[in-house]
Amino acid sequence: MSAMQLFFGRRLLSCQSLRSPGRSLLLPLGFVVALFAAAPLLAEVPNAVAPTETYSGDQVEQPIEFPHDIHAKVNKINCMYCHTYARRSKVAGIPPTSKCMGCHTVIATDKPRIKKLTEYWEKGESPKWKKVHDLPDYVHFTHEKHLQRFIFDNKDMKVENASEVCAFCHGEIKDMTVAQKSRPLTMGFCRRCHEQNKGPFDCWKCHK
């Protein structure tokens, strides 16, 4: 690292992304290569242009190996059923353990993952999940605004298909077990989408 970088510390990151918005410097070296090769599944959201870039994030080990595919694909549970704050707040939220137990006191109680969950519940604890989709402190993304624009204010969009909108930034989570980052979530990624879908361009909309 050069002296310049040391002096300016972490802030240099943003300067870099200003020039090459494809990736963030702080990612561990092994994961810098963005996988443009994989053909992305394009969501069909009326009145929106979906981003096409992909990225391959870390495989993060979670306390319970939560199968998104069983919930969202097989059982067709809406994303917002569990991530219930997304429509009302800037954060989507991790579902409370009570929500899991709402079903799993009766469903699949013999499975090892559910047994583990029940253990947590009975101890009165919540699992410590690892954050997968994280943004730097100076980026103020809000789920509520995006859901409003692409789902609720979008007349041709059915709420049942919300996962198509979520997939813009989170990828095809419904095909994954443990969530994995599959979009770069860099400023360039955001910006191109804002350009195509006529989102706001003021820096202070997201940085403050």
Binding site: R11, S14, C15, Y138, V139, W204
Partner: peptide, 12 residues
């Protein structure tokens, strides 16, 4: 009409 300061652009 605000005079914005964007921290992540600032190079000091």
């Amino acid at each position: 009409g605000l005079n914005a300061q964007v921290y992540n652009r600032c190079i000091g």
